[in-house]
Computed example of a mutant assay.
Amino acid sequence: MTAFVIRRLLQAMVVLFVTSVIVFTGVYAIGDPLEILLPADATMAERAQVARSLGLDQPLIVQYGRFLMNALSGNLGTSFVYNRPSISIILDRLPATLELAFSALVLAIIIGIPLGLWSGLRRGSAVDETIMTGSILGFSLPNFWQGMMLIMIFSVYLGWLPSTGRGQTGTILGIETSFATWDGIRHLILPAINLSLAKISLVIRLTRTGVQETMPLDFIKFARARGLSSRRIVTVHVLKNILIPIITVIGVEFGSLIAFAVVTETIFSWPGVGKLIIDSIKVLDRPVVVAYILVVVTMFITINLIVDILYSILDPRIRSKAP
């Protein structure tokens, strides 16, 4: 197990380094932040002074070398707009995004797995057709359109739920969260549903496929021959055997929920890192953009590593086959 984890960590370091090169080069080669940071009547001397203070007067390779050395000590640059360390700005906003992503993931699990089991056990029935049609819509309808429809129905027409902001927050175990207040929960419901719809569809289809592949197997027939109840067969034998792909997908999708919450956060004005990155791109706040991407990539790598470890625990054969 130790060699397996070390091998994965080394691969993660290589991925992170390559990503930093690509992201830094791509972001720093686009646009000129001075055009946004300085007024139109700024003199050349003022532009040169600001460029020197921000390090923009150096060649790209020199800027990257300085960035890499600072990054190794945890400094991902200072925001051009906020004049604060980029990582601190992101960490301030990250809890709101994690809260939203976690809520969406929980909804995907508690709704997707039961519906997938139900659909898989009643293949070809009206229930199966209805659930699968709903999952197709969850995949097909654009995320931004779903969000606008949720706001139109539940905020504008019915007036049940707020459509923007995070609402009032409180603390649970010293952590500031929307779950601590009813107002915060009300503000969380619509964006969490919007972010979870595609993942619910994915979990439904994955679970349904796993059930249909598992039910005809010999050990299920043997369990039935032993007189085990259908509920026990499904909850113990079937569900246990489809957990590995479900755990894998759920782990990877949690990372994608964080990375792709941008649309949901923008629609619902949710104060997370997704909205921050959109605002930073608009003003070419390069350090924040680079820091955001590297933080998200690091989270992806960490989540994948955890999934790999859980995967290898559930199926030890994976450790011996892993490159």
Rank of each mutant, 00 (worst) to 15 (best):
S155Q: 03
L94C: 00
E46M: 06
L37G: 04
M69E: 07
L60Q: 12
T164K: 14
L150D: 05
I30K: 14
F154A: 04
F80T: 05
R52E: 11
L72P: 09
G77Q: 09
G165T: 08
I113L: 09
A96M: 00
L60D: 10
V27H: 08
P59Q: 04
P95N: 00
N70I: 01
I89Q: 13
I151C: 01
T130G: 15
L161H: 11
F154C: 03
L141I: 10
A71W: 04
I30D: 11
S86Q: 05
L34D: 12
A45R: 02
P95W: 00
V106W: 10
Q58M: 02
T97G: 00
L107M: 15
F144H: 03
M149F: 07
T169D: 03
Y157P: 04
P162F: 05
G55R: 01
P142N: 01
G77C: 09
L91W: 08
G55Y: 02
F154D: 05
P33C: 11
L121V: 05
A96P: 00
G134R: 14
L94Y: 00
M148D: 08
F67R: 07
I61M: 09
S79H: 09
P114K: 09
R93Q: 02
G167P: 12
S119R: 08
T130L: 15
G167L: 07
G65D: 05
W118T: 11
I90V: 07
M44Q: 06
L56P: 04
T133F: 14
G147W: 06
N83A: 04
A101D: 02
G31V: 07
V156D: 05
L68D: 06
L34W: 13
Q58C: 01
R122L: 09
I110R: 03
A104W: 06
Y82E: 02
I90T: 05
R52W: 02
Q63S: 09
G120S: 13
G120E: 13
G65R: 08
A101M: 02
Y82C: 02
L68Q: 04
S86G: 11
E129T: 15
V127K: 14
L117Q: 08
G77N: 10
I136C: 14
W118D: 07
S135V: 07
L141A: 01
Q49D: 12
S53P: 02
S73C: 13
R122S: 14
I90A: 08
W160V: 06
I151G: 02
L56N: 04
D32I: 03
G74D: 14
L115P: 11
T43H: 00
A96F: 00
R122E: 08
A45V: 00
M152H: 06
G134F: 15
G120D: 13
A108P: 10
R84E: 12
V106L: 15
S103I: 02
F102M: 12
V106F: 14
A48D: 10
E46Y: 01
L161Q: 12
S103R: 03
S163Y: 11
A108Y: 09
S119H: 06
L56G: 04
V50Y: 05
Y82N: 07
G124I: 07
I111M: 13
A126M: 13
R123G: 13
T164V: 13
